[in-house]
Design a protein around this nucleic acid. Structure first.
Lengths: 230, 230
DNA sequence: ATTTTTAAGTGTTCTTTAGACACGTTTTTT
DNA sequence: AAAAAACGTGTCTAAAGAACACTTAAAAAT
């Protein structure tokens, strides 16, 4: 029987914090909550929670995210583990940061209000508790890199989107203007979008064609060696 | 006084495991230890240790690495945190994996023997305990990506190296043959190496010129917008 | 001593990719 | 009727990546 082999080792509290990205009005946003308990009660914070004995980190992150947004099946990735000894003044706590990409149109507005959460443009992120600003910066850097090599942008858009919206999204992620013609022709060369017969009429009376991401085709192409690269 | 605000939360054991890379005889290698305690005593394992209350993860990883190799000032990067509930049969333990790049010529051979450690070609990695094989794979993938965009290869070579050694290193990391002329002219175009007047005589009687990485120049160029890209 | 083998060193050409760049159409607003 | 806003589309140029072969030096083999 091999139990308690490590009884002399220190145990620690382990938190999970989520950077939740959304895209709205041509801007990248993150979802923050007003902290409801001490320490730092009343300050803005990432949404988080403690790891429970019976869950792994992914499950904890999904739980935390679901609790705040009501959403399931969200794109989510472990980012980094923060461990400075005094990062949380109340107790020795480590935190594993996750970032998530959601379709901002889908989240549950009531739940967000109940949790006194709010969307902030990433460029106007307030001062957050502990090392949370550092987490946001790292998440942003990771998102920028990922977006260049994986088609994760679609996670932030509605299922149907216009080319213009897609371009604005990439501009927001990469932090620079892109040439309309070059952008579209590059994306078309990938051949992973489906052009629909519908038009989006929300931003002009002429209307703009809607597209969908063809995930099956993308996966097939990846198997054959295709490499998404913006 | 804000203490014990989280008293009801579960605490866990947190380990640090290191994937230590070296480069020798044109091969990438990793350093493994024969585990000296239960569970899984006698099996091959990454070198690891438990996080102590008074250290952060980086410090713990440095401690573990120093304990095994006698080395300081090693290139090291946090990789990923592993958290499956049953990953360690003895107790609920999470592990934060780090990977390190060392100059294999410099490590302390005696210390390694004392710890019953051994270098394995990465391609002949044995079956390891727990999820350690998964860690090695992730480390390898990370190394491959990093090597493309940061000049970290030099960490694996001696201070002075030949162009051929550098090329063989990149071939080992990227897992493919590179064209000698293209490789050298690309590296020369970066203008971050110093060509020395010395020659390395170990692999031919004609001798091959030795080079050094000019780190100051590299840093200066980075400030000016230079982007290392193999 | 002649030939063969091994490693070092060096440029050019072709192909592919990235980046710059402008105008006609539709529809609404003034 | 003119102006303004959003949509959609193609070509040319520059830069980077990939393919490719021979000469020299020295030692080893015959």
């Amino acid at each position: 029987m091999i139990i308690n082999s490590y009884t002399n080792e220190d145990k620690v509290l382990l938190a999970v914090d989520c950077i939740i990205f959304g895209f709205d009005l041509e801007e990248l946003k993150i979802l923050l909550v007003k902290r409801s308990f001490e320490p730092e009660k009343g300050k803005w914070s990432l949404i988080g929670g403690f790891l429970k004995k019976e869950e792994d980190l992914d499950v904890a992150a999904i739980r935390v995210l679901h609790h705040l947004t009501g959403l399931n099946n969200i794109y989510m990735e472990q980012l980094y583990t923060y461990s400075k000894v005094d990062r949380d003044p109340a107790d020795r706590t480590l935190s594993v940061a996750y970032y998530a990409l959601i379709d901002i149109a889908k989240h549950d507005r009531e739940l967000i209000e109940q949790n006194s959460a709010k969307w902030f443009p990433i460029k106007s992120t307030p001062t957050l508790i502990f090392d949370h600003n550092e987490m946001v910066e790292r998440a942003m850097a990771r998102l920028r890199r990922r977006a260049l090599s994986k088609p994760i942008g679609f996670e932030l858009l509605q299922q149907k989107f216009t080319m213009r919206q897609l371009q604005k999204l990439y501009e927001a992620i990469l932090g620079k203007k892109l040439d309309k013609r070059n952008f579209i022709s590059k994306f078309n060369s990938f051949d992973i979008l489906i052009k629909l017969d519908e038009k989006d009429m929300s931003s002009s009376k002429k209307g703009a064609f809607l597209y969908k991401f063809n995930e099956e085709k993308y996966n097939r192409k990846v198997e054959e060696g295709f490499n998404f690269k913006i």
